[in-house]
Nucleic acid binder design. Structure first.
Lengths: 224, 224
DNA sequence: ATAAAAATAATAGTAATACTATAAAAAATA
DNA sequence: TATTTTTTATAGTATTACTATTATTTTTAT
């Protein structure tokens, strides 16, 4: 079984909807590949245009800046995570089991991604780990936040927070814990791979397993 | 009483030691002010030269890139944190009290900073919150890590990890918890101020108090 | 006090970045 | 078939992140 996932992404992020044309979709696919390969700092619309085999001007008709393109991609990812989480959680009634599954989903330890066609989720996950904070750690954060471009992230955080409250209705920090779990999933994975002395992963491999085990300890000891 | 703190900063980070001349110190002071004011993306050596009242060429004789200058500043901060933590912890024997004080220090909830002269610690703290991850979230992380420029961060993490182990010698994730606490101190402060829906801070003010209270819950429920 | 060395200023230049603008060709749609 | 939209091709701009060179000033050693 295969899925084609489309999400309505915030209109402030693009000038012309990249989902509305083949070249638009090619821009997104190649942007994911290119940011994955060279990182956001080295990523330029000129290089992207070469990959897409179009001109820079065409890309500028879709996105006004590379920063908005990054945020567009991250929005797609956050929408995707919330969608997958809600879908897979339907079969589960036990709240603890729900949160365990959430942690698997955010660390990509579940085997779900292979069934999705639209974008390369492995690469997308790498981008989220290394680049997502660059979307909001900018001086203009308050202005761009007014355009609701971080709503998918907030929504995901809210959703996880509700499950935390199911487990312990008296817990005072459901949303902070949720955002901490998401951020920690990213930075512990990065640290385990690149700055292992900031972690206790002895294996030098098995980064995902390590991070997942740690997140479980973190989450469940805090909630109770 | 006033202190003048100097640390030996990794030589790979500069071409000429900025501590060795007045203009060098002025470069660091003005860099802190300028990154604080306009953010790392907008920060350029041209603008910095105007503030320092020297030429760009002079700054390039001290630092080969703005990225290294940022890492230099962060190194100073990490050295400072470890120094202050070790100093203030000498009077304390109880391990739990030690960790509580560490959390106060990393959130800047302690009243210590006013006694330090060298650099503006309030601004430095803002820079650490918003810009520190940009120091290592780059494609070249493995190469620059080989030059030991992240040693002060690792050392601080190790130090906090040892205190965690004092509280519970069987805890399996002392260093991951330490790095999580440091990262969380930064991103929860940022979220509380700019993306409050990712937190449970109802007050819209009192960000530091909120973050400190949350970190205490996080740390002590995980360790036990 | 003088010579040598080092630091800084002044200036110029370069390739690349992050755009904006415009006219013409091509494609889609009515 | 005409009209609109999209894309290309091309040009241009201000800024960035540097490198390079020469001249002047300051520091240091003798």
């Amino acid at each position: 079984m295969e899925f084609l996932l489309k999400f309505r992404i915030n209109e402030h992020l693009y000038l012309r909807n990249p989902e509305s044309s083949e070249i638009g979709k090619s821009i997104i696919k190649n942007a994911i590949n290119l940011v994955y390969e060279i990182g956001f700092e080295q990523f330029t619309f000129k290089k992207l245009a070469q990959k897409v085999e179009c001109t820079e001007a065409t890309i500028y008709r879709y996105f006004s800046s590379k920063h908005k393109l990054l945020t567009y991609i991250l929005n797609w990812y956050w929408n995707y995570l919330e969608f997958v989480a809600k879908m897979r959680l339907q079969q589960i009634t036990d709240s603890t089991a729900k949160l365990k599954l959430i942690l698997e989903i955010i660390t990509h330890s579940d085997g779900y991604s292979s069934e999705i066609q639209e974008y390369d989720l492995q690469k997308l996950h790498r981008i989220v780990i290394s680049e997502s904070s660059k979307s909001y750690l900018v001086k203009e954060v308050d202005e761009i936040n007014k355009e609701f471009v971080f709503n998918p992230l907030k929504s995901l955080c809210q959703f996880i927070g509700e499950i935390v409250l199911e487990i312990n209705p008296k817990f005072a920090y459901p949303k902070s814990l949720s955002s901490t779990l998401m951020e920690t999933a990213h930075d512990q994975q990065f640290f385990s791979e690149h700055l292992p002395k900031l972690t206790d992963n002895k294996s030098r491999t098995q980064h995902k397993n390590y991070v997942l085990a740690y997140l479980n300890v973190l989450a469940f000891s805090v909630i109770k």
